[in-house]
Computed example of a mutant assay.
Amino acid sequence: MSSLQGFTVPRTATGRASITQPPPWHYVGDFLVVDYWADPDAVLAVLPEGLEPHPDAGRCAAVCADWQSCSEGGEELLDPVRSHYREYFIVINALLDGEEVTTCPFIWVDQDFALARGWIQGFPKKLGEIWMTRTFGTSLTADPGLRPGARHGATCSANGRAMSDMTLTIEGESEGGPKHNDPPIVNMRYFPRLTAGRHDEPQVHELVRAVSRDREVSKVMTGPATLNLYPAPGEEHHTLAPVEVDRGYRLTFGYTVDDLEVVKDFA
């Protein structure tokens, strides 16, 4: 019997070399969000099996997050390259057996441990380069803050090509926050099979609901926003380009993940 340990590969005698340590995974991050509408037919085209179109069929959100995270011992916080990462993603609204949910068809991230965690949870993460305006709680010129008139932006690129950019000009505090925050997120976990003659029979093909706990959110600032999605070789996110932009939001949000619910198994 093997004595190798580790939540992910590479597995070793100690398990310390795994790409990511086992859950629970604790997260906190700054978010820049733009709610918008895309072409309803384009949204329908990326809807996973098991989900149905939302009545507001084109409703989407683009999200940039500047994260800090750690496993249970928190040792990554003392070695920040292992705890800091940024990601940029798109979510669409949908229905699961009549319940309002969201799902993520496109997402980029800038660290391998976050990529691995994402695939485990059903997020279709790809590597990219993400940048987002920071604020530090001062009145200095280089710190836009969260006051009315403050301007924030975020960009995402991958393989040397621009994927997206967004901006927000803060008007004041939001009462409701982004539209995508409340519904649970449901994604498709999909791992192909390499066995000759069985390439069309995935090893894992299941619809999963994200489960989180100890959620905490700051006050939410809002204002008018802009959003652009750019076409690039090997990418299809631009099919969800905005036909109308709603509002932008700036907030800080955190939670813990140590569970995942399988909703439907297609394998």
Results as ranks from 00 to 15, higher is better:
Thr155Gly: 14
Pro231Ile: 01
Gly137Ile: 12
Leu229Met: 10
Ala225Pro: 02
Leu207Glu: 01
Pro80Cys: 01
Val109Cys: 12
Val208Glu: 06
Thr103Cys: 10
Leu251Trp: 10
Asp143Tyr: 12
Val91Ser: 03
Trp67Tyr: 13
Glu72Thr: 11
Ser174Phe: 08
Thr155Phe: 09
Gly29Cys: 10
Asp97Trp: 06
Ser212Val: 10
Ala13Trp: 04
Thr102Gln: 10
Glu49Lys: 15
Ala62Ser: 13
Glu206Val: 01
Thr169Tyr: 03
Asp182Val: 15
Phe89Gln: 11
Arg117Asn: 07
Ile130Gln: 11
Ile19Gln: 09
Tyr36Trp: 05
Thr138Ile: 14
Pro148Ser: 05
Ala42Arg: 00
Val91Gly: 03
Thr20His: 10
Asp112Gln: 03
Glu244His: 10
Asp246Phe: 09
Ala154Asn: 05
Asp143Thr: 07
Glu87Pro: 02
Asn93Cys: 02
Met188Gly: 02
Trp119Ala: 06
Asp214Glu: 13
Glu87Gly: 02
Arg209Leu: 06
Ala267Arg: 13
Pro24His: 01
Tyr249Ala: 07
Val243Gln: 01
Thr141Cys: 02
Pro48Arg: 05
Gln21Ala: 06
Phe191Ala: 10
Thr141Asp: 09
Asp112His: 10
His238Ala: 04
Leu227His: 09
Glu76Asp: 09
Phe253Ala: 14
Ala142Asn: 15
Asp182Gly: 09
Gln5Asn: 00
Gly160Leu: 02
Val109Ala: 12
Asn228His: 14
Arg117Ser: 01
Ala162Arg: 13
Glu72Ala: 14
Val46Trp: 02
Ala225Ser: 04
Thr102Asn: 03
Glu236Pro: 01
Glu75Val: 12
Arg215Trp: 06
Gly98Lys: 08
Gly128Lys: 08
His84Leu: 08
Arg134Leu: 12
Leu260Pro: 05
Ala114Pro: 04
Glu206Met: 08
Glu244Val: 03
Cys70Arg: 15
Ala116His: 03
Val262Asp: 00
Ser218Ala: 12
Ser71Ala: 07
Tyr230Asn: 04
Phe253Glu: 12
Val109Pro: 01
Leu140Arg: 10
Lys126Thr: 08
Thr239Trp: 08
Thr222Gln: 15
Leu260Gln: 15
Tyr190His: 14
Lys179Phe: 09
Glu175Leu: 13
Gly73Thr: 15
Asp97Ser: 08
Thr141Met: 04
Gly98Tyr: 06
Arg16Met: 11
Pro80Met: 11
Cys64Phe: 14
His238Gly: 02
Leu77Phe: 11
Arg161Lys: 12
Asp200Leu: 12
Asp41Ser: 07
Leu146Cys: 11
Glu76Tyr: 02
Val28Asp: 12
Pro148His: 05
Ala57Cys: 01
Ala225Leu: 06
Gly176Arg: 13
Asp214Lys: 07
Tyr36Thr: 03
Thr239His: 13
